[in-house]
Every structure is written in structure tokens, then in C-alpha cells.
Amino acid sequence: MKPNIIKEKSFDFAVNIVNLYKDLAYNKKEFVMSRQILKSGTSIGANVREAEFAQSKLDFISKMSISLKEANKTDYWLDLLHATEFLSKDEFDKFKPKSQEMLRLLVSIVKTSKE
């Protein structure tokens, strides 16, 4: 069985997001944006997992499109956390490329699936 790259990367990304949430909530006492990024950042992988057992191609495209929307939302929260100085430049530089990679992969999957 060949590896499912998006499944693996979205899970690893979710683990990183959970750890970011813990740091933001417990150490920086930021509770609103941290909760938002936790929800959207972990939802990416959850929807990828749902898409694995989609009932049809349309269902697959729907689940992956939801993942894409959640990835875009996560990218927004990263930008906002950085702009409001809850994320340092180093932290932002660690997360932003991974977020952009999620977006690129999901755009590619959705686009290819629709063709």
C-alpha cells in the first residue's frame, strides 16, 4: 500500500497545531485565536480522513474542499497571531511553510479530482 502523503502531513500538522495551542493558551494566555486555530488546524486532517472513505467522487471532492477551506482559515489565524505578536517571527517561520504546503497539496487534490 502506497503512503498517503496528505493524510500523513495533515496529521503531523495537527499535532504541531495542538502543541501551538497549548503554548498560546497556557503560556501566553491567549484563548480566542488559539481556540480558532486549534479547531481549523485539526479539522484539516479530520476531513482528509473522512474523504478516505467517501461514498462517491463528489463526496470525496466535498470533504477535500472542506479541508482546503480549513487550511485557508488556519493560514489566516497564523497571519493574525503573528501580526498581533502572539507568534514570534521564528514561530511564524516554522508554521507558515507547513501551512502553505497544506494549501498547495489540497488545491492540487481538489483541482485534479474535479477534472
Rank of each mutant, 00 (worst) to 15 (best):
L20Y: 07
L20S: 11
K22G: 00
L24H: 04
N27L: 15
N27F: 13
K29R: 14
K29G: 03
F31G: 12
V32F: 13
V32W: 01
M33L: 15
R35P: 05
R35E: 13
Q36D: 03
L38E: 00
T42C: 15
T42N: 09
G45F: 11
A46H: 02
V48I: 07
V48T: 06
R49Q: 12
R49G: 05
E50M: 13
A51C: 11
A51I: 01
F53A: 06
A54P: 14
Q55G: 10
S56H: 12
S56R: 12
S56E: 13
S56P: 09
K57W: 08
F60N: 09
I61E: 10
I61H: 10
I61W: 06
S62P: 05
K63C: 03
M64Y: 06
S65G: 13
I66D: 01
E70V: 07
E70F: 08
N72K: 14
K73G: 12
T74W: 09
T74E: 01
D75P: 07
L80I: 11
L81M: 09
L81I: 02
H82P: 08
A83L: 09
A83F: 10
T84Q: 15
T84A: 10
E85Q: 13
E85G: 06
F86I: 01
L87P: 01
S88K: 08
S88Q: 03
D90N: 06
E91P: 07
F92N: 06
F92P: 05
F92R: 15
S99K: 07
S99H: 04
Q100D: 14
L105G: 00
L105H: 05
V107I: 14
V107H: 02
S108M: 12
S108F: 06
I109F: 03
V110N: 01
K111M: 08
T112Y: 06
E115C: 14
